[in-house]
């Protein structure tokens, strides 16, 4: 996939990382390298200048690298991190919750024009990724070429959901902002996607049925927890050796407890990066839970996660005048 902007951004990014490593500003940089397949990228810890050549920046850099800033995967070194606008929110939460020190971080924000999801690409174009030879981009569309034909699909159809509501602006918390120009094509942004609204018209039994159906598929692989930058407990209560809070069996009611607890524990920390839902191998709509909780937290306390480093999370403080609906 060729996109001139991204090629130029990659070059600038490489120079920047090279400089950071050269001047020993950081011990290593967390970035992206090419994945095994053309539509995949993989997180990559760049320690040596010889490795900088492998760094890439393209439309498939979907992984939220801030999850590698969790203390569990840290060794007290000074870290450079490549971040999209959305990833920066996670970093803000980690700093706010004392999981990483700002002075140990060097945040390189790279201009992002939205991340493409290969599954959406397959669904909307009807072309399996194995058949794709080349993808070209124009203002609004992607031209997907195979050896026989080429098909145009709307770019916004293939972007991750979170990209449709993103403003792609420069974050004040970034140490560096790598971009070509300040202009982004905003025409495809600011869409509203219904996440949980449809479920609110259903009665309680219908909702329970909906969730039990989805949770019955859960394999308890814990990918949703492990990938989440907000899940930073040193030992998760579900891994606790002192007490088994949920059975080792992956039974539906146990999964219900697990998923609701996970969602609740990350409420006020969740920046809606969508990684949990993306990595789920059995497509459980976890973002419905997260979005709903974010909305409730916003309604009740006027708080949104990931915006300000010095804001106090509503579950860490209280007001004597809080509304008491329990009389």
């Amino acid at each position: 996939m060729k996109n001139q902007t991204y090629i130029e951004l990659t070059d600038t990014l490489k120079q920047k990382i090279n400089q950071l490593l050269n001047e020993k500003v950081v011990d290593y940089v967390i970035g992206y390298e090419k994945g095994s397949l053309w539509f995949k990228t993989r997180p990559f810890m760049i320690r040596k200048q010889t490795e900088v050549e492998k760094v890439i920046w393209n439309r498939f850099c979907q992984f939220n690298l801030s999850t590698f800033l969790k203390p569990i995967s840290q060794r007290g070194e000074k870290i450079g991190i490549v971040a999209k606008k959305c990833d920066l929110k996670s970093i803000v939460e980690l700093i706010k919750n004392n999981q990483v020190k700002k002075e140990n971080l060097y945040i390189i924000q790279v201009a992002c024009d939205g991340v493409l999801n290969w599954q959406k690409l397959e669904n909307f174009s009807g072309i399996p990724v194995s058949k794709v030879i080349e993808i070209e981009e124009n203002a609004l569309n992607l031209v997907i070429k195979t050896s026989e034909s080429s098909i145009e699909v709307l770019k916004s159809d293939c972007l991750l959901d979170k990209c449709l509501v993103c403003d792609f602006q420069h974050s004040t918390y970034a140490d560096d902002f790598i971009s070509i120009s300040d202009e982004n094509n905003h025409e495809i942004r600011n869409q509203t996607i219904p996440y949980f609204e449809s479920l609110e018209d259903v009665d309680y039994e219908g909702r329970l049925e909906f969730w039990l159906k989805h949770f019955s598929r859960c394999l308890r692989c814990y990918a949703c927890r492990n990938v989440c930058p907000a899940c930073f407990c040193p030992t998760c209560m579900f891994d606790s050796q002192e007490g088994l809070w949920i059975s080792k069996e992956s039974k539906t009611p146990e999964n219900y407890v697990y998923h609701l607890t996970r969602a609740f524990h990350t409420a006020t920390l969740c920046v809606e990066c969508g990684e949990c839902e993306r990595v789920c191998p059995v497509n459980i709509p976890l973002m419905k839970l997260n979005k709903k909780l974010a909305k409730e937290v916003k309604d009740a306390f006027g708080y949104q996660a990931g915006l300000q480093v010095d804001e106090l999370s509503p579950f860490k403080t209280f007001c004597q005048e809080d509304t008491d609906e329990f009389k």
């Binding site: 993989r42 810890m45 999850t67 995967s73 814990y222 492990n226 990938v227």
Partner: peptide
């Protein structure tokens, strides 16, 4: 060591 740096420690690879 290199793989462990990025591995999330989830069970996807083994369960699938």
């Amino acid at each position: 060591e290199e793989l462990a740096e990025t591995c999330l420690g989830c069970g996807i690879c083994t369960y699938l």
